[in-house]
Design a protein around this nucleic acid. Structure first.
Length: 484
RNA sequence: GGCUCGUUGGUGAAACGGUUAACACAUCGCCCUCUCAAGGCGACAUUCACGGGUUCGAAUCCCGUACGAGUCACCA
């Protein structure tokens, strides 16, 4: 069986947005589902005006962070290079093929001005007519063309399309799509600056790089027939097409970096894990056969099936990502977790407290890393709080009861020598029993006294262990003073 | 406007002519519990955009309507 080759072909124009990343993921999965599948990175920088410095590095960094390792690309090389289109332009590659098409009568040289065409289009639209550009340059004589080219007049090369008949293609996701050739416009293949358009370059490069499966967004669905006409003109085999539905921001809008919608790096900065992001976006537009949602990248490659990619847009739901990120956090190996979380703990806690122990109480409670700082803000400095905090219906306490609990707890805590979790726990539970109250009546006030907060990561005993005996007693004294 | 595509609960979605229309997130209860989380249990679409048709039987097939998206760039 022929080797499956897919490619991710972004243009370096800024941040990596989520829809783009998902396309890269799917392309990767299509390739890696097969043992010898190859995933190729190609940089499409044919629009010299939109290039943004550093954008290529963002692409490399994102793929790397996600574990989407490419087998061939500008940075890793490969037998089909160069993998950057601007470098291929220098080799005269695209112009050569464009001229070949002109010779075959499948394309022509055009001297028209962009503004003229635009004006004609506006007139037509104003009249409510549909506009297909009929290029007068098609009727120019060979001599005139040669003369004008020789005189240095700028020109583009346009595809020739016979308006008779129809063109159809099979998409693995959307099925067979047929269009009337009369509705196809004769697109520009080679721009006047000598660079190819995406429309042309992608056909040439996909063929030259022997891409077998073209994975891309469904915005290309309507131009695919034109690409196929090019493949046919050149006598090349067509790839399999896998068009993906869009990732939406809401019902009506696609996710776009333009509106400040979440990019991959924004999400990482907010404390989401790359593997969770990847897992989540895999599920936007694709559903596994099994009733399961948590998949590592390798598992995704195993389970992936193009036939189960959907056709309608999927809204990106940050709430579900948050949940999934939490699953990854909770299931993570503790040592790795402690390491991951440590910078955040360091930022929030300067005091001499055991960061490993803090990581422990955080483990089951954090969904995204950026929540950590606020969760730990009471360690260094006990916040000022209202004694009404001690009133809690469920815990059956109020300021009066809390005062009594704290007095009893204080004398017990002061009396013990080994200040560890088990000693404190059993002692306090015994105490509650002796006092004839539920554990909460004793524990809740202690936790509030130690943190000044209604909710904390960790319970009273865990917090007390981390803070240590003297700090615990100090904070209880503060509480007692407030309550008296 | 032309062409192409799409439409199952708030969200992601399953179902491939016959099920009480899965499952997950969110939401709401209850349980567990030293708070909150986590975890456990339960509730949540008499209905699959709408209208016709085919069929013993339709979310699933066909036709139409509505709404939405994409595209019609010397952007990708």
């Amino acid at each position: 069986m022929k080797e499956i080759r897919t490619r991710f072909a972004p243009s370096p124009t800024g941040y990596m947005h989520i829809g783009n990343l998902r396309t890269a993921l799917y392309a990767y999965l299509v390739a890696k589902k097969n043992e010898n599948g190859k995933f190729i990175l190609r940089i499409e920088d044919t629009d010299q005006e939109r290039l943004i410095e550093g954008a290529t590095d963002i692409i490399y960094d994102t793929l790397k962070a996600c574990g989407l390792k490419h087998d061939e690309g500008p940075d890793v090389g490969g037998p089909y290079g160069p993998y950057v289109q601007s470098e291929r332009v220098k080799q005269g590659l695209y112009k050569e093929y464009a001229m070949k098409l002109v010779e075959m009568g499948k394309a022509h040289i055009c001297f028209c001005h962009e503004e003229d065409i635009q004006a004609q289009k506006e007139v037509a639209e104003a009249k409510g007519e549909s506009f297909i550009y009929r290029d007068p340059c098609k009727r120019l004589s060979k001599e005139e063309i040669e003369r004008r080219v020789a005189s240095g007049e700028p020109y583009v090369i346009r595809q020739n399309i016979d308006p008779n008949g129809e063109t159809s293609f099979d998409d693995e996701v959307y099925g067979t799509i047929t269009v009337d050739n009369a509705t196809l416009d004769e697109m520009i293949l080679l721009k006047s600056d000598g660079f190819p358009t995406y429309n042309f370059a992608n056909v040439i490069d996909d063929h030259l790089m022997e891409i077998t499966d073209v994975v891309r967004g469904n915005e290309y669905l309507s131009s695919t027939p034109k690409y196929n006409l090019l493949y046919e003109a050149l006598g090349w085999p067509k790839p399999r097409y896998i068009h993906c539905p869009p990732v939406m921001k809401d019902e009506h809008h696609k996710l776009s970096k333009r509106n400040g919608d979440a990019s991959f790096q924004d999400l990482v900065a907010k404390g989401y894990l790359p593997e969770a992001i990847l897992n989540y976006i895999a599920l936007l537009g694709w559903a596994p056969e099994e009733e399961r949602e948590i998949y590592s990248l390798d598992e995704l490659a195993q389970a992936f099936n193009v036939k189960r990619i959907g056709t309608s847009g999927a809204i990106f739901d940050i709430e579900k990502l948050k949940w999934m990120n939490g699953v990854y956090m909770r299931e993570m190996d503790f040592d790795r977790y402690a390491e991951l979380v440590d910078p955040y703990i360091k930022k929030a806690v300067k005091g001499p407290y055991d960061h490993k122990a803090i990581a422990h109480i955080l483990k089951e409670r954090v969904n995204i890393l950026s929540e950590i700082e606020e969760m730990l803000d009471f360690f260094d400095e006990l916040p000022d709080y209202d004694i009404e905090l001690y009133r809690n219906k469920k815990m059956k306490t109020d300021p009066e009861i809390a005062r009594n609990s704290l007095i009893e707890a204080r004398s017990f805590l002061e009396s013990i020598d080994s200040y560890d979790h088990d000693t404190i726990y059993t002692g306090l539970v015994d105490l509650a029993q002796k006092m004839g109250v539920k554990n909460g009546v004793l524990m809740y006030p202690i936790r509030v006294a130690l943190s000044g907060k209604a909710f904390t990561p960790g319970g009273a005993i865990e917090l007390s262990c981390i803070l240590g005996k003297s700090e615990t007693l100090r904070r209880i004294d503060i509480a007692l003073k407030k309550l008296s």
